Simulated assay, not measured.
Amino acid sequence: MVAGGLRVLFCGINPGLMTAATGHHFARPGNRFWPVLHLSGFTPRRLEPAEQGELLSYGLGITNVVARATARADELTAEEYAEGGRLLTEKVRRLAPRWL
């Protein structure tokens, strides 16, 4: 869910198990990302996780520091964070979003 020239690139730590199962970011019922995204004025209406493809039309994208899905972020290793940080830095340099 990224492209060059984004206004904002939202970055999570890593996908949760529900995201991995559905293929949609912040897919767990009750996750506050989608409601808050709308209430903050980033989108004209509340999007559902399955509508994440619409984010690009608003100049928004989503990525993660680490790609591996886990039930909890504390399951990630220091090595995964270090490598993820390196990859995220490269991604941000390449895509040049206005805000991360």
Rank of each mutant, 00 (worst) to 15 (best):
G85F: 06
G61Q: 00
K91I: 14
L39H: 15
N64Q: 08
G59T: 07
H25A: 14
F33L: 11
G41P: 13
T22Y: 00
G85A: 06
P49R: 00
T70R: 15
V65S: 02
G59L: 05
A50F: 11
H25Y: 12
L87P: 06
F26M: 10
R46P: 01
L60A: 03
P44L: 01
A73R: 08
R68H: 10
R86H: 10
L39C: 13
G30S: 01
S57L: 09
R46S: 09
L60M: 06
T22L: 00
L37M: 05
P35Q: 03
A78G: 14
P49G: 00
A27Y: 00
S57E: 14
Y58T: 10
F26K: 07
W34V: 01
P35W: 02
P49Q: 04
H24A: 07
R28V: 01
A27Q: 01
E51F: 08
Q52M: 10
L39A: 15
E54R: 09
R28I: 03
S40D: 13
E79A: 15
V65G: 00
A67C: 08
E90M: 15
L56G: 03
E48V: 08
R72K: 15
E83W: 10
A71S: 10
F26W: 13
E48C: 08
A82K: 10
H24F: 12
R68D: 03
L17S: 10
E90C: 12
R46M: 11
L88K: 12
L55K: 03
G41R: 14
E54L: 12
E51P: 04
E54A: 07
T70P: 04
M18N: 06
R86E: 14
H38Q: 05
A71M: 05
G53V: 02
A82Q: 14
N64P: 08
L39F: 14
A27F: 00
R72E: 04
V36K: 13
E79V: 13
T77L: 07
R32K: 12
P35D: 06
F26G: 01
A67L: 11
E79P: 08
T63V: 12
T43K: 03
G41S: 14
A67Q: 12
Y81C: 02
A27C: 07
I62W: 00
G30K: 02
F33S: 02
P49C: 05
R86S: 10
A82D: 14
R45M: 09
A69D: 03
L37I: 08
E51W: 02
E54S: 05
P35H: 06
L17G: 05
G23S: 05
T70D: 01
L87M: 13
G61T: 04
S40E: 15
R86Y: 10
E90Q: 15
A69T: 00
H25W: 12
H25V: 13
A82F: 09
Q52C: 13
W34I: 04
G85H: 09
H38M: 03
E90V: 15
H25G: 11
L47W: 01
N31A: 02
A78H: 09
A73Q: 04
H38Y: 08
G53P: 06
R28T: 08
A78V: 12
A21M: 07
T63C: 12
A20F: 07
F42E: 10
N64R: 06
S40C: 15
L37P: 07
K91M: 15
G84E: 04
A50S: 13
L76K: 06
H38G: 01
S57H: 11
L47H: 03
T89D: 14
P29L: 03
S57R: 14
A50I: 07
L56E: 08
G61C: 07
L55V: 01
